[in-house]
């Protein structure tokens, strides 16, 4: 065991319905290290196993073979220790809970006192700039606002690791870019490690320290692209270096499809 990686994936394979009808090899021989504080994106053709890999790291499903460690512990232990927060494409807010209560859900499950929960949810709401909406219900918020609440919920207990599955997938382009900047600033503030599934090349290039390009199912790591764009600001999207990286990712994706 080594403590220096936030996530350590070793020769992991996942086959659904192994030995039964409908057997699907989702991912094959994946090795991946994510360093603490790093932002790593997973990108690849639809159905290549991005969500599967993320759910494996989250210990929501078990690998067919191989090992996964999170902060040096088995993934199962990390889940029990609440070492990560998670956000999905659909915000998944509970519509019978007010916004503040949604953010407090994990805290409630951890047995925090009401007062501490209130304090933290207020703090998180400020972080995602939704202070005025604490007592609203999710249906009263726009899609982008709901997604921000989901992120606040994932971060509410300040986990060291954030696992996100196309969290901005359902948002329009402008909101999306805005949310990307916000996530980066939150991540920087809390020094969180992020593993981020996306379909968007621009999103991957803008946000990541490294972009992992997966091949079609069964997913394997095709290429890992380092991105160094320094501190991200909105103008980074106009930086020639940004375009260069986006092109590199696009070409990598094309070559996996061609190799198919």
């Amino acid at each position: 065991m080594t403590g220096d990686a936030a996530v350590r994936v070793r020769s992991v394979e996942k086959t659904f319905n192994l030995g039964k009808v409908g057997e699907v090899a989702a991912i094959r021989s994946v090795d991946l290290d994510v360093a603490p504080g790093e932002f790593v994106s997973l990108i690849g053709p639809s159905g290549c196993g991005k969500s599967t890999l993320l759910r494996l790291i989250a210990d929501l499903i078990e690998p067919s073979s191989g090992t996964i460690e999170v902060f040096g512990k088995p993934a199962a232990q990390a889940r029990l220790d609440q070492d990560y927060g998670m956000a999905f494409q659909r915000s998944g807010l509970f519509d019978w809970r007010k916004i503040a209560a949604n953010i407090e859900l994990p805290l409630e499950l951890m047995g925090w006192t009401k007062e501490k929960r209130r304090q933290r949810s207020a703090e998180m709401l400020r972080l995602v700039k939704l202070d005025e909406f604490a007592d609203h219900y999710p249906q009263q918020l726009s899609g982008g606002m709901q997604q921000r609440v989901a992120i606040a919920r994932a971060l509410s207990f300040k986990p060291q690791l954030l696992l996100m599955d196309e969290p901005f997938g359902a948002l329009d382009e402008m909101t999306r870019e805005h949310m990307q900047s916000e996530l980066i600033s939150i991540k920087t503030e809390l020094d969180t490690t992020v593993v981020f599934v996306t379909h968007s090349i621009a999103e991957a290039a803008f946000m990541s320290d490294r972009v992992v390009v997966l091949s079609p199912r069964p997913g394997e790591i095709h290429e890992i692209i380092d991105v160094d764009l320094g501190t991200r600001v909105p103008d980074t999207r106009e930086d020639p270096e940004f375009f260069k990286k986006a092109t590199e990712i696009r070409e990598s994706l094309r070559s996996v499809k061609a190799a198919e």
Partner: peptide, 14 residues
């Protein structure tokens, strides 16, 4: 409840 919500509760080890 959708799978996502159940997985969310799972992710909290609820």
């Amino acid at each position: 409840p959708p799978d996502e919500s159940l997985e969310l509760m799972d992710s909290y080890a609820a």
